[in-house]
Simulated scan of single mutants.
Amino acid sequence: MRIVIVGAGQAAASMAARLRHKGHAGEITMIGAEPVAPYQRPPLSKAYLLGQMGLDRLTLRVPDWWHDQRITLRLGEAATAIDPARREVVTDKGRIGYDALALATGAQARRLPAAMGGDLPGVHVIRTLADVDALAPQMQAGRRLIVIGGGYIGLEAAAVARKLNLDVTVIEAAPRILGRVAAAETADMIRALHRAHGVQILEGTGISHITGTDHATGVALTDGRDLPADLIVTGIGVLPETTLAQTAGLMLDNGIATDALGRTSDPAIWAAGDCASFPWAEGRLRLESVGNAIDMAEAVADNILGANQPYHPKPWFWSDQFDAKLQIAGLGVGHDRIVTRPGDGQHGGSVWYFRDSRLIAVDALNDARAYMIGKRLIEAGRSPDPDAVASAPDLKALLA
């Protein structure tokens, strides 16, 4: 069986490795538009941008591994179409036949419209190696950086910039930072952390446009203020990369829609990672995380080989900002109660999410113990009493 994987990120690499590990002896071909071998994305906005991690440590496998595993990497080659009838992927360099096709196309960074100055030189996004290679030389001490968007990517970039002694302002249009992804209590801890390091955070603040003609010079706010800047980073989320799927006539629903096995509306085509949505609870879910990219890709690999096992996600995430680590287990969507516990240090603690008295998620800032205990409880389907979480002298007692 010839298996073709479109994409060359974490999900694609994990899927290819799993296929070989599970004994697939046929052809495996990975098609990636970027000219570099599969690499980790999370360090891009952290250690790599800071200059603490080189490309050799960023890549997921040593070069010889791909050859030894007989996995063909077609890098710097863009997939432009899928021909489902002929079971071929069309690229800018030719056609590649498949028996099973897996789409691990990931996501692309949202950009401000050109009418708002989003395409001006000096306006950056953080998604690919090329994005960060373009941004890093501009991160010079004393320069003024405006970060548009108070999500994890924007806040991570802000933290790196402050470490490099830039003057940093974060602008968030919503009433608070992390509004879509975390409780207000978690946002309060992260806000305090940034302000303690000298980051100015403007919440509930709209943007009219980016100023400048040949180069970005600042941001005009909807309240009439103009903020000067030497460079701008937009961290306003991502969009699942669905172009190939759409033109091939595959069903879309917040990404490429798959069934519980990871199969798309075409029985020969599968999808995994940031680009894919799958059945969850009473609806559908699409997760943007390394954990899901690995777990779903491995599940899909097994199912391509006939395992026929539904994918059950075990969500976990993390974010490094300054010298603090935020670790998240579960999904806090639809929570109706929050319980907080203080941490040991000035910037730390944990936030426990409950829905109908059931523990569904934990955010832990500089509190690895709370994270690990919360994660074990969630994955075991166990829910301690919320009052017990708040008052327990030792969280380990919750596991008893």
Rank of each mutant, 00 (worst) to 15 (best):
D363S: 02
D56P: 00
R86I: 01
A229G: 09
E172Y: 06
G348Y: 02
G122F: 08
Q200N: 15
G235L: 10
A271G: 09
W316G: 01
V6F: 05
D56K: 14
S383C: 07
I190C: 02
R41K: 15
D99S: 13
L326G: 06
M372Y: 10
D356S: 15
H347N: 13
G97T: 12
H21G: 15
P63L: 08
G224Q: 07
K46D: 06
V62W: 04
E241N: 14
D266V: 05
R191C: 07
T72N: 13
A12N: 02
D274I: 03
E203L: 04
D131S: 10
R180H: 14
L239T: 14
I96F: 07
A47W: 00
Q10V: 15
H335C: 11
I232M: 04
P113S: 12
Q200K: 15
I177R: 01
G283D: 11
G150S: 10
L166R: 01
H347R: 07
G212D: 07
P342L: 08
G106L: 07
A380Y: 09
T234V: 15
A79V: 09
R143S: 12
I236W: 05
L145I: 10
Q108N: 14
P342S: 14
A182V: 08
Q140D: 00
L155G: 07
T72S: 13
R86T: 06
E172N: 11
L377N: 03
L112R: 05
G206H: 10
A400W: 00
T242A: 12
T128Q: 08
P121F: 10
A329Y: 05
K325L: 12
I31T: 06
V4W: 00
W352N: 02
R61W: 02
G179W: 10
A81K: 10
A392Y: 08
P121S: 11
P279H: 11
Y98A: 01
Q138T: 14
D385Y: 04
V89L: 04
E282I: 07
G94P: 12
V351N: 03
D188I: 10
E27P: 05
I373D: 03
A301N: 06
D131G: 09
A136G: 00
S265C: 12
S45Y: 03
M15N: 03
S289H: 12
M30E: 02
P386K: 06
E77M: 07
T91D: 02
G255N: 04
P84L: 10
T242H: 02
R111W: 04
L221A: 12
V362E: 00
I269F: 05
A107K: 08
A329W: 01
D344A: 15
E27N: 06
E77S: 03
G179P: 00
Q40I: 01
S14Y: 02
A307G: 09
G255D: 03
L331M: 15
D92T: 12
M139K: 06
L120R: 11
V339E: 08
R20P: 09
M372E: 11
V333Y: 12
D367Y: 00
D356H: 15
R284P: 05
L365N: 06
